[in-house]
Each structure stands twice: as C-alpha cells, then as structure tokens.
Nucleic acid binder design. Sequence first.
DNA 1: ATAATAGTGTCTGTTAGACACTATGGG
DNA 2: CCCATAGTGTCTAACAGACACTATTAT
Lengths: 244, 244
Amino acid sequence: MTEDRWTPPAVLLAVDLVILTLRESHLQVLLVERGVEPYKGALALPGGFLRDAEEDLTAAARRELAEEAAMDVEPLHLEHLGVYGEPGRDPRGRVVSVAYLAIAPGLPEPVAGTDAAGARWQRADRVLSGELELAFDHRRIVADGVEKARAKLEHSALATAFCGPVFTIADLQRVYEAVWGIPLDPRNFYRKVQKTSGFIVAAGSERKVTTGRPARLFRAGPRTVLYPPMVRPAEQPNAKGREE
Amino acid sequence: MTEDRWTPPAVLLAVDLVILTLRESHLQVLLVERGVEPYKGALALPGGFLRDAEEDLTAAARRELAEEAAMDVEPLHLEHLGVYGEPGRDPRGRVVSVAYLAIAPGLPEPVAGTDAAGARWQRADRVLSGELELAFDHRRIVADGVEKARAKLEHSALATAFCGPVFTIADLQRVYEAVWGIPLDPRNFYRKVQKTSGFIVAAGSERKVTTGRPARLFRAGPRTVLYPPMVRPAEQPNAKGREE
DNA sequence: ATAATAGTGTCTGTTAGACACTATGGG
DNA sequence: CCCATAGTGTCTAACAGACACTATTAT
C-alpha cells in the first residue's frame, strides 16, 4: 500500500470453491475433472482465473461455478475461506488463489459444463483420507473448508440450511452427525434444539416416513447465530494442547 | 484454475498487517502515516505490494513491517485474516489485499522507516469508533482483526503472550478485560484460570507491586488450545439473532 | 401384540456467576 | 489500626450427558 516509481509485480489471481452438501448421509464436496493441463484429468475444486481486472472475486467464483458445474448459483452464500499463495503451488507460475466456501442443502447432481470434463459430488471423507487425489493443494483447501463447516454448525443455524424447507428434528440431527462424524443422543439433541429458541419453529403438520411415530415438522427459525452454541464433543480428549 | 489460449488478467497484490498489542491497559494497533498518494498523510495499516512475483505472502508482510515500522519481525506469528479485493477499494486500480494479523506482548514504540512518515501505536477503540480515520477500507480490516483476537483469547492460551515472562493472575485478567472490553470477576477468573491445567504454571516467587497482599507469579503453561474455552459473555444479550 | 421411531421426565455431575469471607502485605 | 489486593469457600441456577419411560404410528 505504499511505494511508487517502481512497478509492483502482477500476479494471477484465481478463485477456488469448496461446495459442500449432504447426500446419502455423507458430507460431499463438488469436484471437477480437469480438462486442461496442468493436472489434466485429475480431480480438482471448481474454480478459475478472474475474467478481467474489474471482476469481483465472489462474482468470479459464481461464474466459474456456473461454467464448470452448470449449477444454479443464485442462492449460494459464499464465504471467504482462505488464501493459498505459496510460490510453486501452480506450475504455470505465481498463482494466488482465494478460496470460498458454500454450504447448501441437497444439491442436485451437476452436469458437465464447458470448462471441465465433468463435475461430480464426492465424499469429503474420501478426499481427506487421501483415497481420492486432488490437483494442486486442493486437498488442503477441502480440509480447511470441512473444518470451517464443522465449526459453523456449532455457532450458527447453518444446519437448517442443509435440510429442506421443512424437516424433523431427527433430520436435523442427521446433519450434525454427518458433518461432525459422530453419533449424538437423540433425546438430548431433541431438547437442546427445542430450547434454543428461534433456531427452529414448528410447521403445523406431521410426517410419516417409514415406520414409527410420526414426527413433527419444523422450519428454520429467525435466529442465525446460536448462543449458547451447540457443543461439539472434543475431538480427541487427550490431543495436542491437552494433558492433566 | 482452468482455461488456456486466453490470458487471464493480472492484478496487483498487496499485504496489509494488523499488529495488535497491549499498552497502558488498552488494545492498540500499529498504524503508519502514508507518505505517498493516494491518501497521503492519512493513517493506514502497514503493508504494501509484493516486491516480485516469487515473494511469499508472509515474507512480503514481514518485509513491509520491517521497512515501514523498523520492527523486529522475527518473533511475530502472522495469521491469515482475510482478503479485501472489491474493485474500487484502491484508486490506483485493481488491488487485492491479503491481510495478516499478529498479536504480541508490549511491543516498543516503533521508529519511522523508509516508506512511511511515521509509525505509531493507536488505540484500537478509537479506530473502531471512527474517531481516527483510516485510509482505504482499513478500518474494516482492523475491526476484523480485533474480533479475531477476541475470539482467539477464548480458545487459545494467547493471552499469556501479552504478558511478560512471568505475571500474576491479575495481570492476565487485565489482558482479557482490555481485549474484550468488559470487566471480569477476579475471584471467578482466578479459579477458572487455575483449574484449566496447563494454561499457567507457578513460577516460584511472589511480587509486590503497589499495595495489598503480594501475588504469586506464573508463567505460560504448555497448553496452547483451551478446552473448555474461556467463555466470553454474550456481547449483546438481545442483539441480532437473539430473541425470546 | 410387536417393532420402531418420536417425544418426555428425571437424575447426576459440572460449571458459571455471585458474593461473603479469610489472608497478607503497606501505611 | 485501616486500606488494598490476593486468594478461598460456598451457594445457586443452568446445563450436558445418561437413560428410563411414555406416545403414536405401521404391520
């Protein structure tokens, strides 16, 4: 933010998107198969370069998502995730990538777009475990996105966005269990969610899915930030930073 | 991360730094007086453009800090804060700025460097209130940095870093009160900190500062992440997202 | 009736917050 | 003595976690 008389170097600016959804009880991330070098044929996050020097970063992110996955981009809320800019992360030269995170309810199977040979949902745990290899440093970006999503469930009413317009409390619990990767007690979850006023509100009727007593239906309430938060059990009670 | 045959636009990449410290019981932020247009003479965060296309982002941040504030940059831990890249935020053209946050104990008064007419500590609350005007969108960046610092006090042992090598529990409490901007009960704070094992460890002797009973001395313990966290009282019990 | 899921009641251990109280120094 | 700060004890209300129990449907 200073200097003159000397010309600062220009860099290539890219955006990458971590789009998370819940499908078949698993947290899934949208990946595309790269159609061009480098890493041609490999799986990667959707993303790409800014189109022109006036394009807004989030606009670029939405455009890339529409191009590569033909997704309806309107309703997505994009959130800044991080910047990945180590020299050498892209063989084409100095590329600094700004990553965005979006979390959304059961999104449809995307169709192949123009830039990518294909776009598909993949289970996030398979990416994190290394079972699926990703181009560039995209695995790291996915890991950061998943961790951010887990944290957001604690402090925001985001989980309701994973469900349809109406849902049962058990539906909501499945969201938490899938994203956090741990089982929760249904009874305690039930009351915890109920007493967090403004989180969910009753929606008249009931629903019968398969067997058992029909469940009441709810919709998302007006509250966006949860205080007190939904507590996520400590990941590893005796991990780093812990002792006693 | 796709496309070829067409050349992506280059943008100017800058780094900005939010350096926070605690001086005279107030959270303070390091600001420089801009020596060049635009905003010449105005207060701004230290920062600047990448020197060359191979420079690492954090390296650029450290270099700018050394140049503009002649600060010893070695021990600072820089943490990614955000990206500020709206078109039009800089009159010189498309500038995307990556902001970093550093939090450190009683740093010395900086001396004027080469790029800036001066660098000085300013109270963060004066910046947030608008009493001090900042160039560009730097006030917003400071606000994001302060909020991040407040959150970090909750979940990490960062507060001990604001104190000297040894400190009393009252010293530590003053850190929390200054950063959070609220008073805490000394008795409850005392026990809360004590029972969070690994947070602080006893350091032999005692200290008598002015009047009253001498206090025991402690030093930072081995634990870096606090679980359970130090809970920060809800900012506004009835603010956005709240009701009932 | 049985299975299965929804929803309620209740106990227990822990914790935040309030605040009385004791301890130990300097005038 | 008094004052000020350090440190302890203790009560209460809220809450997480465990889990028995009741309710309501389909088969």
